[in-house]
Design a protein around this nucleic acid. Structure first.
Length: 490
RNA sequence: CGGGGUGUAGCGCAGUCCGGUUAGCGCACCUGGUUUGGGACCAGGGGGUCCCAAGUUCGAAUCUUGGUACCCCGACCA
């Protein structure tokens, strides 16, 4: 009818776009590469943000906010960093507009040119470390554990809703430590926070690992990541945590006096996840009928569709449901009673399936007589009739069941799509199939580059706690002592 | 940055090749009524600088030239 979704088998990217647009998550804006996050999509982000923020606070972090603008000179203080980001930045050159003397609206006032251009932050390491210099004098000032919720801008060539937009929302943690060991522990701790969040809340199994040198964050000594598999078998980097060593401390001259009274450069980490996670959520779970949202992140968890003739019946149903709704709300569940009499039940069913509401309850006069209610779960599309009396308890249990089931389903899918390749021929064949490949690699950037060039596959990560085994590099045949994860990625 | 596509009502499109009444269709919207257990129906109604500019012409959504915006696919990146 009005909202047809392209089947994911027919055109996976179109399917994804349809879900985002027709599921009411986001819209295109009139600015290239920038999207409008609509209330429903923002609702998911709010849930993600709240859950993550709680985890950050539990691990001792506090929030702060730094400027959107970064003086251009800051960006050139760390060589690798500027190399990685300079090409894709928006630059502010003027600070005032004026009326066009030729009557063409407003134009940039040529007299309002900035002495030094400002860069719209693509990430905030530089502006933050510039402040840290003033905040850190002694080992007693450390560790400094700060997070910021912000928007950043990266002027990407090619954009995709949620997955890659010119402006996006994220959080970035920036911590300073007195020892290398402590900073590495922090990097690993935050990777764990991300991985647990993905698995518990997003119902998304992830592989924890380290990036190869090629794939490392610009300016980092080590980049840890979580990698998830989408339903087309492609990889999506869902979060990163970087050990920055003393690079930024040296670039911004941030030193502290240790217990022995000696000056030392501080050790740094940074870590972030973005609204890209919403893209991951969509692509990992949804189907051709629309979104499938995990209960823990669904803005609306339960919807009640009354089936009625006339206001009298509607009121009767509402009176029946009122105590149940109150009970659910008391348990922290978001529930909506859809009393719209302009839309028929069938329309509403389709609509709530499109938007991925985990549980739909339908109740009409037939149910009232029998003391029952129809329960439909979005993840499996199963429907059943349940006793009205105990429905609140049933719903609570079912939400948990859906959350678990979604994770299990995604886990099964992923594990079925990770294969070992032992020869180059095998590798070439497998890379054309959806999924990840576990294979030996000789550890050199040259081989990695060559494989990427030939197959478009990149090394997603070297898994943590990776089993050690002797083998030969899939491409060069040189000796290798562990397998790494290869895949095509978003 | 290369290749392709599209700009016509809130959304999706037709009309453009071959210029000619008042620019049309579906959905959505508004009013009234009947409906409501899987995407309702009837009747009436509102809504348009046809992306912009210049040109050709008696006459341009339609032809010419230039511009511009966004989307999709690739390379690059979260």
């Amino acid at each position: 009818m009005a909202k047809e979704i392209t089947s994911k088998k027919v055109d996976y990217s179109q399917w994804y776009n349809d879900l985002v647009l027709k599921g009411g998550l986001a819209d295109y804006s009139s600015v290239r590469g920038c999207m409008v996050i609509k209330p429903y999509g923002y609702g998911i982000w709010e849930k993600m943000r709240d859950a993550l923020d709680a985890k950050f606070k539990e691990t001792g972090h506090v929030n702060a906010y730094f400027p959107l603008f970064i003086p251009k000179s800051f960006l050139s203080k760390e060589a690798a960093h500027v190399e990685g980001f300079a090409k894709e930045c928006a630059v502010v050159t003027h600070y005032r507009l004026m009326n066009d003397p030729n009557g063409g609206g407003v134009i940039v006032d040529p007299d309002a040119k900035l002495e030094e251009e400002l860069i719209v932050r693509p990430t905030s390491e530089t502006i933050i470390w510039n402040s840290y210099k003033n905040w850190i004098q002694s080992y007693r000032d450390l560790p400094l554990l700060i997070n910021q919720w912000a928007n950043v801008v990266r002027w990407e060539m090619r954009t995709r809703l949620f997955l890659r937009t010119a402006e996006f929302l994220w959080q970035e943690g920036h911590t300073a430590h007195s020892t290398s060991q402590e900073a590495i522990e922090e990097t690993e701790r935050m990777l764990d926070v991300y991985a647990n969040f993905a698995e518990e809340f997003m119902a998304l199994p992830v592989i924890r690992g380290k990036k190869t040198a090629n794939e490392r964050f610009a300016g980092a000594l080590e980049t840890y990541c979580i990698e998830a598999m989408m339903q087309d078998g492609q990889a999506l980097q869902a979060g990163t945590s970087h050990f920055l060593g003393q690079n930024f401390a040296k670039a911004f001259d941030v030193q502290f006096l240790n217990k022995e009274g000696k000056l030392e450069y501080v050790w740094a980490t940074s870590w972030g996840v973005s609204t890209r996670l919403i893209g991951a959520l969509i692509m990992a779970h949804s189907d051709d009928d629309g979104l499938i949202l995990p209960p823990k992140l669904a803005p609306l968890q339960v919807v009640i569709v009354p089936i009625f003739k006339g206001e009298e019946q509607l009121n009767l149903i509402f009176e029946k449901m009122k105590p149940i709704m109150d009970s659910l709300k008391k348990s922290g569940i978001t529930v909506k009673f859809d009393s719209d009499d302009q839309k028929r039940p069938g329309f509403k069913f389709a609509e709530y399936e499109m938007t991925g509401v985990p549980i739909r309850l339908a109740i009409g006069s037939r149910d009232i007589e029998n003391g029952t209610i129809e329960v439909a779960r979005r993840d499996t599309k199963e429907k059943s009739s349940q006793a009205l009396e105990t429905i609140d308890q049933h719903v609570i249990e079912l939400l948990e069941e859906i959350q678990k089931n979604m994770y299990q389903k995604a886990l099964l899918f992923r594990d079925q799509h990770i294969r070992n390749a032992n020869t180059w021929e095998e590798f070439l064949k497998m890379i054309e199939q959806p999924g990840f490949i576990d294979a030996h690699w000789d550890g050199t950037p040259e081989t990695e580059e060559k494989i990427k060039e030939l197959t478009k596959a990149t090394i997603r990560c070297i898994p943590l706690n990776n089993p050690q085994e002797n083998g030969a590099c899939i491409y060069s045949g040189k000796p290798s002592k562990e397998r790494v994860i290869f895949a095509r990625a978003y």
